[in-house]
Design a binder for these strands. Structure first.
Lengths: 206, 206
DNA sequence: GGTGGACGGAACGATAGCGTTCCAACGACT
DNA sequence: AGTCGTTGGAACGCTATCGTTCCGTCCACC
């Protein structure tokens, strides 16, 4: 087992005396294995003991960082950087939609994300802490969609009374359904077709 | 614990001699508790021991019927009668769509179904037997959508080259997303708005 | 070179489900 | 009346995870 140099240690923790700090490489290995196990076994079947074992790490190292599974999941989820960022104006509603869809697809195609997201949605009903953890992601997606709609309204492409809730469902759900739930494919032609069809839906969605 | 009269016994099993047959009331109680526990704990957390216990039944009675959890789930799922049946011609694409959406919503609004379906979709990736069990449901839904599209083509409302795969995603996914995944509401106005928007999408979906 | 804290590893008692096996009681059939 | 198979209930040995505790080792800092 390799050791690290001090500059790879976790930052932000004060070192009272000549002392050690929790090693970042161990934290990273635990994080990686946590999501790997999650995708393999599902949240309910996820065993912290197995996470530590497959990370090649003692259980003590894990429990020193997180008190239990829900806390670990919430903490790690909140650190995930997979946010759907806004790429800005594309010139037309359909082009904007295609850009958003490609961004969603990029996230959902990750093999781990695909497994974890569906499992997460099933688990949220039983573990409220998880819902709080993913709220930032939902908000980011919703803001992205709102910005898209604002631009379309400004261009005069859609009505200002468009139901944004339903619009958000229409934009994200079909791609989520195909890629994450059914495990199906989505090539560029599919995304463009979807963008065209959703565009037509939004134009009548006053 | 009540006993039953013979006419309530399970049918279809031959009785070799003066013998008993597995009692249908026990089977029904086990079935009910199986789905109840599934909704409460999720498939992975589902314990057959707890199912038997909360059904007020010995474990032996359960294991006499099904060898294990996957077999029990597959068997019971294949017996569920919640199929989205075709109600036939409605006169216009939008009216047909509204009828399909209402049928889907009726199924998804069941509190147990809502929980179980999302959990099932997450579990399918890990338990292939479950996928085989729900294939009839997927086929029924798909045939329903295909019939709808055929009628729309016959009316000249949509192109004959419409991508049925994408159309099926567009019809079912937004409602599934809102009702089952987000746990949100869907009133009649929502369904009608959705039907109108999806109708517009299908009309440009050649 | 000393010190202190995180490390891997092992063990702990407790809880729980698995799938099986036995049992006495009951009731539908011959 | 007698037979036979299902019933609820209890127990079996096994495996696995939980969360905690202890140990000797390693290493960055002072």
């Amino acid at each position: 087992m390799e050791r690290n140099r001090s500059d790879e240690r976790r930052t932000g923790a004060r070192v009272p005396s000549g002392a050690a700090v929790m090693r970042s490489d161990v934290t990273e290995k635990l994080t990686r294995e946590f999501f790997g196990e999650w995708a393999r076994t599902g949240y309910a079947g996820l065993s912290l003991e197995r996470v530590a074992r497959s990370a090649g790490v003692g259980k003590a190292a894990l429990y020193r960082r997180w008190p239990d599974k829900a806390a670990m999941a919430s903490d790690l989820l909140s650190q995930v950087g997979l946010t759907i960022t806004d790429a800005g104006e594309r010139g037309s509603l359909e082009a904007d939609l295609a850009a958003v869809l490609l961004a969603i697809r990029r996230v959902l195609r990750h093999p781990l994300v695909k497994r974890i997201v569906t499992d997460l949605h099933a688990e949220i009903g039983r573990t409220p802490a998880l819902e709080r953890a993913i709220r930032p992601f939902q908000r980011a997606r919703r803001e992205r969609v709102d910005a898209l709609i604002d631009r379309a309204i400004a261009r005069g492409e859609v009505s200002a009374t468009l139901d944004r809730e339903t619009a958000a469902d229409l934009i994200g759900a079909p791609l989520y359904w195909r890629v994450a739930v059914l495990g199906g494919r989505s090539d560029r032609a599919h995304v463009e077709r979807l963008a065209r069809m959703i565009g037509a839906a939004l134009r009548v969605g006053g």
